[in-house]
Structures are given as C-alpha cells and as structure tokens.
C-alpha cells in the first residue's frame, strides 16, 4: 500500500506542472496563502455554528438559522480549501505523501466528514423545538464538540506538515518511518 502511494506520488512528481508550481516562489506561496486564508471563511463559519450549538456564541439567534445561513459561505470556503489543498499536494507529492502529519490530517478529515454527516442527520431528525434554546440537545452538542476537536487537530497537523522532524530522509527505521510510509530503498524524497 505504501509502495503504491509512493509510486503514485513519484509519478505526479514527473509532471512538469507539478515542478513548475513547486519552483514558482509566488505561485506556490499564493496557493498556500489562499489555502490558509480560506480557513477564516470555512472554519470561521464552522466554529461559529459549533459554538452556537454548545451555547457559547450567538445564543440569541436560533441555532438552525445560524447553521443554515453560514452553511453556504462555509461550503464555498471548503471548496477553495480542497482545490488549493490538492494543488499543494500535487506541487510537492512525494514529501507530502510521506509526511506523518499529512497522514494524520487525512485520517482526521475522514473522521470530521463522518461526524459532519451524522451531525447533519441528527439535526434533520430533531424536531426543532430546541431551536431557540441556549444549548442544542446532547447528541448535537457532542457532534459540535467533536467537530471543534477534529478541526483544531486538522489545523495543528496541517501546520506541522511544514516541519521535517519525521521526514523519511532524516529518520531511522522505526515507528515514525512506518507511520510515514517510508519505502525501503526509495530514492526520491
């Protein structure tokens, strides 16, 4: 599996466009800046929804109204983050594919997606009688809390990708090499 992922990353790395983006100081940095700045739109909205469900912000505004209204800018922000995120991976495929932080981030993104699906499902299922209450029902509060936790960790791991502490190039065989998916005899890093 790791070898497959590594070979795929190496194949991406052979693309001229990948190299061009990576080697362009302004292009790469602007894509990364857009990825980070869009956090303000996407996660900014998501955090406000979660905080509302937990009764920590905007308590005088109906919870479903907050969730409904902030959903569109959040989705727009998320779409931009996905596009720029995929482009960043494409620009530095081998190192990203073997970054322990990137792998943790992907797992958490998956967990956050499942949590969002369940949260949405529970919200539709609830009768809405709690809408004006300061705090949402327990199952929605748990979902909001988990969402906050997952996304805080996603941002932390995303930031840590920049650091090379566990890169295959610098670590010796062990748990970190296993988790990073380093391949025996690999020549590209």
């Amino acid at each position: 599996m790791n070898e497959l992922f590594y070979n795929f990353a190496v194949w991406l790395d052979t693309h001229q466009l990948s190299t061009s983006i990576h080697e362009s100081y302004y292009m790469y940095n602007w894509i990364e800046s857009t990825h980070v700045l869009t956090l303000m739109l996407c996660l900014g909205m998501l955090f406000l929804i979660d905080l509302r469900m937990l009764g920590l912000a905007f308590t005088n505004i109906p919870a479903t109204s907050i969730a409904r209204r902030l959903n569109t800018p959040m989705i727009i922000g998320f779409s931009i983050m996905v596009v720029t995120g995929v482009t960043l991976f494409y620009a530095v495929p081998v190192r990203s594919a073997q970054s322990i932080w990137f792998r943790f981030k992907l797992v958490l993104l998956f967990a956050a997606a499942i949590n969002a699906y369940l949260f949405h499902k529970n919200m539709i299922k609830s009768d809405g009688s709690w809408d004006a209450d300061v705090r949402a029902p327990k199952n929605l509060r748990v979902g909001a809390g988990l969402s906050l936790l997952f996304w805080i960790l996603i941002v932390i791991f995303g930031r840590l990708i920049a650091y090379d502490w566990f890169d295959c190039e610098y670590t010796s065989p062990g748990i970190s090499q296993f988790l990073s998916g380093c391949v025996d005899g690999q020549i590209q890093f």
């Binding site: 980070v36 956090l39 303000m40 739109l41 996660l43 900014g44 909205m45 998501l46 955090f47 406000l48 902030l70 800018p73 805080i152 941002v155 932390i156 995303g158 930031r159 840590l160």
Partner: peptide
C-alpha cells in the same frame, strides 16, 4: 503557531458574519 492560526480563524469568522 497553529493556535495563532485558529484564533485568526475565529476572528475572521466573526468579521465575515
């Protein structure tokens, strides 16, 4: 650094809303 980013996210969300 990551918490700085998260704080900016919260701040940005409030500004946008």
């Amino acid at each position: 650094e990551a918490f700085h980013l998260l704080a900016m996210t919260l701040l940005g969300g409030a500004v946008f809303v």
